Computed example of a mutant assay.
Amino acid sequence: MERLGFRYFVMFIVLLAVQVLFLNQIQFSGYINPYIYVLFIMLLPVNTPKYALMLLAFALGISVDIFSNSLGVHSAASVFVAYLRPVIIRVITNREEDLSEYPGLAQTGFQWFLGYAVIMILLHHLALFYLEVFTFANFLNTLYRAILSSVFSFFVIVLSQFIIFRE
């Protein structure tokens, strides 16, 4: 149990560091901003209590907010997807499927992880970008930014699953 807690602590720190030191500096023509820290929320054990899931998501989001000088948008988006995560897992999982405690690509299969990652990343990015602009005046422009960033973030997350999180 202690080993598992240490593993998630290291994952939290590494994803936070990669996000704030490298990925926050990437911005392709103002439309593509990769946010992969949502991977931490996605990879928490399936049986994580909802209160712990929400607290960890808030801690991660507020940490990104502090280092990014944003006003709580990352923490709000993180808590939003953490709140919806159990429902998303329940909806995309068949009753016959024996879902591993760890919802990674190697444990759940490509098709399941693809659906899970697309939904989680898209919801996170939609909440993040609409909270960031806090208006529907440029609705389509914000939607375009959220979708492009989601696609780029999805590719980075899936790539990380193949390279780093193979076990």
Rank of each mutant, 00 (worst) to 15 (best):
M1T: 09
E2L: 15
E2V: 13
E2S: 11
R3G: 08
F6T: 12
R7M: 11
Y8E: 03
Y8S: 05
F9H: 02
F9E: 04
V10I: 15
V14L: 13
V14T: 12
L16M: 04
A17D: 04
A17C: 11
V18F: 00
V20K: 02
L21D: 02
N24L: 10
N24V: 02
I26P: 04
Q27N: 12
F28N: 00
S29I: 07
S29G: 00
G30S: 00
G30Y: 05
N33A: 10
V38H: 00
L43S: 02
V46E: 08
N47S: 11
T48L: 09
P49T: 11
P49D: 14
P49A: 07
K50H: 10
K50I: 14
K50R: 14
Y51W: 14
Y51R: 14
L53C: 02
L56Q: 04
A57R: 00
A59S: 15
L60V: 04
L60S: 05
L60T: 06
G61W: 00
I62M: 10
I62Y: 08
I62L: 13
S63T: 08
D65N: 01
I66G: 02
I66A: 15
S68R: 11
S68C: 12
N69K: 08
L71C: 06
L71Y: 11
V73Q: 08
A76Q: 07
A76H: 03
S78Q: 01
V79G: 09
V79L: 11
F80S: 12
A82K: 01
L84A: 11
L84D: 01
R85N: 07
R85E: 06
I88A: 08
I89P: 03
I89N: 06
V91F: 14
I92V: 09
I92W: 00
I92Q: 05
T93K: 11
N94Y: 11
E96L: 13
E97D: 13
E97W: 12
E97N: 12
L99W: 05
S100G: 05
E101W: 03
E101T: 07
E101K: 12
Y102N: 12
P103S: 10
P103N: 09
G104W: 11
Q107E: 14
T108A: 13
T108Q: 10
G109A: 09
F110L: 15
F110Q: 09
Q111C: 09
Q111L: 15
W112I: 04
W112G: 11
V118K: 06
I119N: 07
M120Q: 05
L122M: 15
L123N: 06
L126G: 00
L126Q: 04
L126I: 14
A127C: 15
A127K: 10
A127G: 02
F129C: 03
Y130R: 07
V133S: 07
V133C: 02
V133N: 07
V133A: 05
F134Q: 13
F134L: 13
A137K: 14
A137L: 13
L140T: 12
N141R: 13
N141H: 13
Y144C: 10
R145M: 08
R145I: 06
A146S: 15
I147P: 04
I147M: 06
L148C: 12
S149V: 03
S150V: 02
S150N: 01
F154V: 05
F155E: 06
F155K: 08
V156S: 05
L159M: 14
L159E: 06
L159P: 03
S160D: 00
F162C: 09
F162W: 12
F162G: 10
I163M: 13
I163C: 08
I164W: 15
I164Q: 04
E167F: 12
E167A: 13
